[in-house]
Amino acid sequence: MAAPRRCWFVFGLSAEEAAGDAGPGRQRLEPSSDGIRRVWPAWSYAVLETGSGLEVHSAGRRQPLPEDCVAALPSETHAVLLREAAVEAWPRAAALRGELRGQPAWSRALPPGSRPALPLLPDGFVAPRPPFYTALPGALPLRALALGHEHVVGLGAAGEVYGWGGGRHGQLGHGSLESEQQPRLVEALGGVPMRAVAAGGWHSACVSDGGDLYVWGWNESGQLGLPSRAVAEEQAEDEDMGAGLPGPAGPPAGAGSGCGELRFTAHGCAHTRWRAVHLGLG
């Protein structure tokens, strides 16, 4: 039996929508002869890694980046590019053209032979918006790092999780809505080694060595995979509008649907086996 073909899609805000025109919606990225290996998305464009190097995809057009570019962190103002000898931040317009001429907006030289995994650098981390570089405490060895909109989640050498930055939606996992200027251990996950971390706009996630997924932070739109008040209200409105129409039988949707007596607020944490862990404001 032939192996399934892997496809990449992009969706969300497009250049046409940003200009006020109707965008094409979800688009399939047609692979080149070298295929597509990785995708780094921004709101209105994406950077692709193919067998031939990096290229920028925007409004249906592709533009190759210089051959020494090996990784990217794009945003709507700048694109941070990992090159052979340095990490550089270039204005978005220059990245879209693939023309990296003159001086970058910011750069930092790398130790010889270093090939960091962005956004983590040997002595700190980089973000695709100013300020581009932030140093980390020397006593904090991290093996992975993820950037949210206002916060950072770090994975320690022993599998411990750290959260810092903005905390107004409980995305740091410290049991409060307070911000933290320095990395602080997520104590609720103590004793559970993690192997990966991720950060959304105002929520966070990590995967344990045992394969369990933990999520916490803002759940206004159900982004934690938990019942959400906003989603429940929207479903209730849809049901009211469709009252009297034939439909499939089954229990009504809403907060707590499919979860027995469990109820979650917009801030909280759980993982895929539904054992609740209080990391936000429960």
Score class of each variant (00 low, 15 high):
residue 204 S to E: 00
residue 3 A to E: 15
residue 16 E to P: 02
residue 234 E to G: 14
residue 77 T to M: 08
residue 116 P to M: 03
residue 62 R to A: 01
residue 131 P to K: 03
residue 237 E to I: 07
residue 192 V to Y: 01
residue 266 A to Y: 11
residue 14 S to K: 01
residue 24 P to Q: 11
residue 190 G to E: 13
residue 186 V to Y: 02
residue 4 P to S: 03
residue 136 L to T: 04
residue 138 G to T: 13
residue 4 P to K: 09
residue 256 G to Y: 04
residue 216 W to V: 00
residue 172 L to E: 05
residue 162 Y to L: 12
residue 189 L to P: 03
residue 72 A to G: 05
residue 273 R to L: 09
residue 41 P to N: 09
residue 162 Y to E: 02
residue 267 H to V: 03
residue 33 S to H: 12
residue 136 L to I: 06
residue 119 P to L: 01
residue 160 E to M: 09
residue 250 G to F: 09
residue 7 C to E: 14
residue 140 L to H: 05
residue 147 L to A: 07
residue 54 L to W: 00
residue 97 R to I: 00
residue 53 G to M: 04
residue 163 G to L: 03
residue 75 S to V: 06
residue 178 E to K: 11
residue 41 P to M: 08
residue 59 A to I: 01
residue 185 L to P: 01
residue 236 A to Q: 12
residue 162 Y to N: 02
residue 8 W to V: 08
residue 30 E to N: 11
residue 175 G to L: 02
residue 85 A to K: 14
residue 77 T to K: 12
residue 120 L to T: 09
residue 90 W to K: 06
residue 190 G to R: 14
residue 207 V to H: 00
residue 35 G to Y: 04
residue 161 V to S: 06
residue 234 E to N: 06
residue 249 A to C: 09
residue 138 G to A: 15
residue 238 D to Y: 02
residue 4 P to M: 06
residue 163 G to F: 01
residue 209 D to P: 00
residue 6 R to C: 12
residue 176 S to D: 15
residue 263 R to V: 02
residue 44 S to V: 14
residue 237 E to R: 15
residue 106 W to P: 04
residue 25 G to C: 12
residue 201 G to N: 10
residue 141 P to Q: 11
residue 281 L to Y: 12
residue 132 F to Q: 07
residue 28 R to L: 14
